[in-house]
């Protein structure tokens, strides 16, 4: 897949649009003369939407994970896991419609604007979409550690809080990091819901309440009307490669951080 993507960027023919890729401050005007392929607005849009979704979903997801693994009565825990799996299986377009009739509508009503699409709405819906992944991965990581260490630690007369703080949290750190990495990859790569809710406007966003066009939305919108092999086509594939690279780099960063923390914390 990576090779196919790289081939379409023109890398092997020496046609990689390096200059355009570096011009992040330039506007996205592929039809202008000369055309301009600045992707800065898309990167900012992607990182804003991903940042909002992670800021909401990570604490909430890990919180649900803790609840499912330790606090929930067995009957509730039994229902929670399939419920999370069900949420994870809902198509993105359904989430998109849900966001459209709730957050987008509320923001339009509140702000008095004709439509209420914004990066914030996209981020919030994205948070709901990645929540089941983070929650179920966290729950699994925590549950395994609890099973192993619970009796050994509580048998010494310490409290559940002490067990959680000094053992479970530390031992479950790799699993929790995996949960965040999973959420991050999903958030950065999500296309449809983001396209429906962000406003899909090729302009530099001024803040979370602005309309914007995250990279995936730009790729999905533009690719269908682009001639194969054209400079714009190569630019879109280059952007897709960079997105893939960004997801890989962020995941490797989390992995490195996890390893460093874990060694420090005496695994």
């Amino acid at each position: 897949m990576v090779l196919f993507l790289l081939k379409e960027t023109g890398l092997f023919q020496g046609l990689l649009p390096t200059r355009d890729l570096l011009q992040v401050a330039a506007p996205w005007s592929p039809l202008a003369t000369p055309p301009s392929f600045g992707l800065g607005h898309a990167w900012v849009g992607s990182f804003l939407v991903t940042g909002i979704s992670l800021a909401l979903a990570v604490p909430l997801g890990i919180g649900i994970g803790i609840f499912a693994a330790e606090i929930a009565p067995p009957a509730v825990a039994r229902i929670l896991q399939p419920a999370l799996e069900l949420l994870a299986g809902i198509p993105a377009v359904v989430y998109g419609f849900f966001g459209y009739v709730t957050f987008v509508k509320w923001y339009a009503d509140w702000s008095g604007q004709p439509t209420g699409e914004s990066l914030l709405a996209a981020g919030v819906v994205l948070a709901i979409m990645i929540l089941p992944f983070i929650a179920s991965t966290s729950a699994e990581a925590l549950r395994t550690v609890y099973q192993d260490y619970r009796e050994a630690a509580l048998g010494l007369g310490v409290t559940e809080g002490c067990l959680f703080r000094r053992i479970v949290l530390i031992k479950a750190l790799p699993g929790l990091a995996a949960a965040v990495a999973l959420g991050l990859a999903r958030a950065l790569g999500e296309t449809l819901a983001v396209l429906m809710l962000s406003g899909n406007t090729a302009a530099m966003p001024e803040g979370p309440l602005s309309r914007g066009q995250p990279l995936t939305a730009l790729l999905a919108t533009e690719l269908g009307e682009t001639a194969a092999g054209s400079p714009k086509y190569r630019m879109l594939f280059s952007a897709a490669c960079l997105l893939l690279l960004a997801v890989l780099a962020l995941n490797m960063g989390i992995l490195a951080l996890k390893r460093r923390f874990f060694e420090h914390l005496h695994d």
């Binding site: 192993d148 260490y149 630690a153 000094r166 914390l265 005496h266």
Partner: peptide, 12 residues
């Protein structure tokens, strides 16, 4: 106190 069958080191 109790000593378990499988000795477990705490992560410290």
């Amino acid at each position: 106190g109790i000593v378990q069958q499988r000795p477990l080191a705490f992560p410290m």
